[in-house]
Design a protein around this nucleic acid. Structure first.
Length: 599
RNA sequence: GGGCCCUUAGCUCAGUUGGAUAGAGCAGCCGACUUCUAAUCGGCAGGUCGAGGGUUCGAAUCCUUCAGGGCCCGCCA
């Protein structure tokens, strides 16, 4: 079913992945040192070391890395933190990678790495290319990311765009960190809104036949249905003109849904989003798959006939108690049990959703992720309950809620109203700013924070525009490579790999290399937390580091990338090139093309 | 009435499975262009992390109560 999975498991490529996460390396070194201390009796054997961290300190004055090992272990070891720290620091200092390990504060060990370590990072990036930062963390785990999943009733709008970008970046991030990812779109083509769509298209069909048509309340008035009506005429002629709804509804439903999905696919393609799988809700009906999923739950005594308590607070006017078929979602943390059948016996939307997730689980995924709009927040608990019930808790479902986008122009909000037909589509946004800017800006906020998207500001070429700022850093490096070539220096990656990186001896250069070295760790954190925005923020910081070093070359010409001595030049260019490679890798995850020049 | 999310500098927001003196950009003030792109950079100033209580060596982060904002709350998906 999925070609990548076979190779990704067992003896596959992840077995060979060399960890490039420097922080993980030093943590391993720390654990080794602790094991030595246990062996010689300084600390007890068998201490739990899961909470030992090695991370970059906030304050650079505290060195390159800091570990909390002594503080975490003090209590279980029955020793003073500083005593453990002293012994541990002594052990760490013996490693050639450690220039200095000193005890500070309540028992931190501040570690300063040998310059050689930072120089090596640059070399590793040049060898690994944009694969520097790839991780085996996911161990080939199969993850399904479901996103967009918009009702096929019209073109995608700005809100969908954010979900699309988020889901796509998350999928890429998970792939980069060693997961086997399937990108999936669930087509909500089973509900009553498709009838509305069909009736709306029918009116456009009549229009195409020259009839004067009024658009009553409750149909979709959008112009985008005009060509669908015309296409319908082209295919079926006047066969359905002035015929009763029963005759044409099913056929036009199918026709219109297909047309809308074409629209959606076109929009997604413009954004650079390519789904692996489209799953249809409608296709679940009449196949017995909904019934099968419900039966599975019934077998676990999670389906029953019952009557729900009326909702607290404002009571709907027409509320009356009814007996319904309910799913016992409270058994898995939901607040109330949820109906899966309407009072007329047909399924609620929840039932096919259960079947759909049953299907996903049946396809063998190890983890599921759904990207929903924030207005679906009330749906999270029951969906998680359903998946937990279907899999006995063995397959985690994470649901990421995407907050609204406020679209602005010159600081003025563009008010949107679907009824007035003034909503801004994904296509409109791409026309205005292009796919790269759209994607990057959509990821400059955490998913659960509202996002202001000012279409005039994001095109500004200034540092308050993060897209530009990051692209500019990349373009600057490309400029250096061009200048180097003009000066007769071989600045190809092959050549730079052989550069004498020992010449990168300045603290400012090592600081930038240190930022580069954070990339693999950042990837793992972002992947673990399912937060691709972290990549965008990191790229901003990395770009900032490059700009800073660049400008130091104004005062101190020895810090400029291009030097009179070719060997020195190549070492410095190698550093710049490493930065550009990591920027390219990060932008790749976000789905943004790096710029070679900004003119 | 209940559930979920949010509240961090004047503004917009980051903040690492709990870590040291809480960061960035914008706005404000001061500075750097005979230069690989000044479309950039450096510095100053700016905070009871919504409020109270708790957990512990240590809390913006975890628990709890409260306040304010958003989304949702049987037969719409």
């Amino acid at each position: 079913m999925n070609k990548a999975s076979a190779g990704a498991r067992g003896m596959g490529p992840f077995r060979r992945t060399r960890p490039m996460n420097l922080f993980a390396d030093i943590r391993a070194l720390t654990l080794d040192a602790l094991a030595d201390l246990a062996r010689d009796g300084t600390i007890p054997e068998g201490l739990e070391t899961g909470n030992v961290t090695v991370e970059p300190p906030r304050d650079p004055a505290h060195g390159d890395m800091a570990t909390n090992a002594a503080m975490v272990l003090a209590k279980p070891a029955g020793l003073k933190p500083r005593d453990i720290a002293e012994a541990l620091a002594a052990h760490l200092s013996a490693d050639p990678r450690i220039a200095e390990a000193e005890v500070a504060g309540p028992g931190f060990i501040n570690i300063r790495l040998a310059p050689r370590v930072w120089q090596d990072v640059v070399g590793k990036v040049l060898v690994a290319g944009t694969g520097f930062g790839r991780s085996g963390m996911g161990q080939g785990q199969r993850v399904n990311v479901e996103y967009v999943s918009a009702n096929p009733t019209g073109p995608l709008h700005v809100g969908h765009t954010r979900g699309a970008v988020f889901g796509d970046a998350l999928a890429a991030l998970l792939e980069y960190s060693g997961h086997d990812v399937t990108r999936e779109y669930y087509i909500n083509d089973g509900g009553g809104q498709i009838d509305t769509l069909a009736r709306s298209v029918y009116l456009r069909y009549l229009e195409a036949h020259g009839q004067e048509v009024a658009f009553p309340e409750g149909v979709y008035p959008g112009d985008y249905l005009v060509p669908v009506g015309e296409a319908l005429k082209a295919e079926y002629g006047d066969a359905w003109v002035d015929r009763p709804e029963e005759e044409w509804l099913p056929a036009i439903r199918a026709f219109a849904t297909e047309a809308m999905m074409d629209l959606v696919r076109t929009d997604l393609a413009r954004l650079g989003v390519k789904m692996d799988v489209f799953s249809s809700e409608k296709a679940l009906y009449g196949t017995g798959r909904i019934e099968a999923a419900i039966e599975e739950l019934r077998g676990k005594d999670l389906i029953y006939r019952g009557t729900l308590e009326p909702p607290k607070g404002k009571l709907p006017e027409d509320w009356e108690a009814r007996e319904q078929t309910l799913f016992r979602s409270t058994a898995y943390g939901d607040d109330v049990d949820r109906p899966i059948q309407k009072s007329d016996g047909s399924w609620t939307y929840f039932a096919p959703d259960i079947a759909y997730h049953h299907d996903k689980v049946g396809r063998g995924f190890d983890a599921l992720i759904n990207v929903f709009g924030a207005d679906h927040g009330g749906y999270v608990k029951r969906m998680k309950a359903a998946v937990a019930a279907l899999t006995d808790g063995t397959v985690p479902l994470d649901i990421k809620l995407i907050q609204i986008v406020r679209l602005l122009r010159d600081g003025q909000e563009l008010k949107m109203s679907k009824r007035a037909g003034t909503f801004v589509t994904l296509s409109d946004v791409i026309d205005m700013v292009g796919p790269d800017v759209t994607r990057f800006v959509m990821l400059t906020r955490k998913n659960d924070a509202p996002l202001d998207f000012d279409v005039s500001k994001v095109l500004e070429q200034s540092k308050d525009n993060p897209v530009f700022y990051v692209q500019y850093a990349h373009a600057r490096v490309m400029s250096v490579l061009r200048k180097a070539a003009e000066a007769g220096i071989d600045a190809s990656d092959e050549s730079l790999r052989t550069a004498d990186l020992g010449k990168l001896d300045h603290e400012a250069e090592q600081a930038l290399a240190a930022k580069v070295a954070e990339w693999p760790r950042l990837v793992e954190i972002a992947a673990r937390t399912h937060e691709p925005h972290r990549v965008a923020f990191y790229l901003y910081e990395l770009a900032s580091g490059l700009h800073a070093l660049w400008n130091r070359g104004h005062e101190d010409t020895t810090l400029r990338f291009l030097q009179d001595d070719p060997d020195t030049s190549r070492a410095k260019i190698a550093l710049a090139r490493a930065v550009s490679i990591v920027i390219a890798a990060g932008l790749g995850i976000l789905g943004v093309e790096p710029a070679n020049e900004m003119r």
